[in-house]
Structures are given as C-alpha cells and as structure tokens.
C-alpha cells in the first residue's frame, strides 16, 4: 500500500518536475521562447486554437485520412493474413517476406507515394494503409496460426463448413493477438498519416505543425503538439484497456 503510494508520488513528482522546469526555464529567460515558449503562452495558444474554424477543418481532414487508411489496412491485412494461413506451406513462404519488409522503414517509400498520388490526401491514405497493413497482417498470421490442431480436426470431423470453422475455432483463438495487431496498426497508421502530412501535404494536422514551425510560431506549434499528444495518449489508454479486457476474458474462458 505504502509502496504503491510512493510509486504514484514519484510519478506525479516527475510530471511536476518537468512542468516546473518548463516554467523556470522560460520565466528566467534561460531558453529562447522560440524553442520553448512559456506554459501560459502555450495555454493561450491552445485555447485560441481549438475555438477557431481552421483547427476543426484540419482535424477533420486528418481524421478522415486516418479512417480511410486504417479501414484499408484492416481489411487488406486481415484478408491477407487469412489467405496466407490457409496452408502451412504458404504461411512459411510469406510470413518472412512480410516480416522482413516491415523491418525496413516504409517511410523510405514515401516519395513514391507522392509521385503516384500527388500531395493531396490520397498519398497519405495510401502510405498510412501500407504502413498499417504490416502489423495487422503479421498479427493475423500469428493469431490464426495459434489455433489448436485438435479443435480444427474436431470441427472438421463434425462437418463444420470453413465459415463455421472460422467463426467458432479460428476467430476465438486468434482474437487476442488480432486485437493487439489492430491496436498497433492503428497507431502506426495514425503516426504515418501525421508524418506524411508533415513531410508533404496541403492540409491536415501534420501540415499545420510543420507550418507553425516554418513560420517560427512556436506557441502555436506547441499547442498543436499538446493537442495531438493528449489525443494519442488517451486513445492509447482506452485501446490498451479494451485489449487487456479481451485478453482477460479469453483467459477466463480457457
């Protein structure tokens, strides 16, 4: 009990030290406000940012891009994973190819997406979808490969169709691994869309962060960063707890 309390206090103290250092460094003018604007300036910038219409249009563009990219990544990733695991042989052939490609930073290929799809939202959709595809496909392969051979044989001998086998044997056993893939895939999709927008784009959140930096409008840039980080961290928290619940319910069923 006291241990948990001490740990919590250390964590809160850490955040306090970071915030305090931020305030001290800026109020004593030790760092240029160009690099690190004072907290109150960032606060003002955030409150000014979120009430303005351009903010919501940029957020709308980015969220729509992420939704499209993620949708494509999920459908293609799960389908490819399912297709490859139809036979053990093809799993062994394709899994190293997909895993090997995923160790190469796919950002390298970003200029090709710009070449093919232009600097509009299309290139970011394609880039996010390709980046998100890999963890989803790999986890689908890992998840579907996890099914107990005895259950598969039992289902087959009881005359289950391939759809029924999928529904009652493959999907339940793959579920926890699949959910991890979907979560990881989402955050990779999210980060790559933002990164793509910062690299080369005409609209969206990533573009606005880069634009604020180019204009040396630091308070505004920090305001954008704060908004994105709060969004990502809380979303990560929610998705991790959903995932933990899925894993726990599976463990309970076994």
């Amino acid at each position: 009990m006291t241990g948990a309390f001490a740990q919590r206090s250390i964590q809160i103290a850490f955040l306090g030290v970071v915030g305090g250092a931020w305030w001290l460094l800026t109020s004593s003018h030790a760092v240029s406000p160009l690099f690190l604007p004072p907290p109150e300036a960032v606060y003002t910038a955030v409150s000014r940012l979120v009430v303005a219409a351009p903010f919501w249009s940029a957020v709308g563009v980015t969220l729509a891009t992420i939704a499209k990219a993620y949708g494509i990544a999920v459908v293609a990733g799960v389908f490819a994973g399912w297709l490859v695991t139809r036979s053990k042989f093809w799993t062994e052939v394709f899994e190293p190819i997909i895993a090997g490609l995923f160790t190469i930073p796919i950002t390298l290929f970003f200029p090709m997406f710009i070449l093919f799809f232009g600097i509009g939202a299309g290139s970011k959709v394609a880039y996010g979808a390709v980046y998100g595809f890999f963890p989803i496909a790999l986890n689908t392969i890992a998840g579907l490969g996890r099914a107990d051979e005895r259950y598969l044989r039992a289902a087959r001998s009881m005359g289950a169709s391939s759809l029924e086998t999928f529904r009652h044997v493959l999907l339940p056993s793959a579920f926890p691994v699949l959910v991890t893939g979907l979560r990881v895939g989402f955050f990779i999709c999210f980060a790559s869309v933002l990164g793509g927008e910062a690299l080369s784009s005409i609209a969206g959140v990533g573009r606005n962060i880069a634009l604020a930096a180019e204009l040396m409008d630091s308070a505004r840039m920090y305001a954008w960063i704060v908004v994105v980080i709060c969004f990502a961290v809380s979303l990560n928290f929610v998705m991790t707890s959903i995932e933990n619940r899925a894993t726990a319910s599976e463990a309970a069923r076994r």
Partner: peptide, 12 residues
C-alpha cells in the same frame, strides 16, 4: 507519444 509530431520541433 506519437513522436512524428515533434519532428518540426527537433529541426527547429
């Protein structure tokens, strides 16, 4: 934290 949002800051 999605670090890519910090990229302009790093370059700055």
């Amino acid at each position: 934290i999605p670090q890519v949002t910090l990229m302009p800051l790093f370059i700055l």
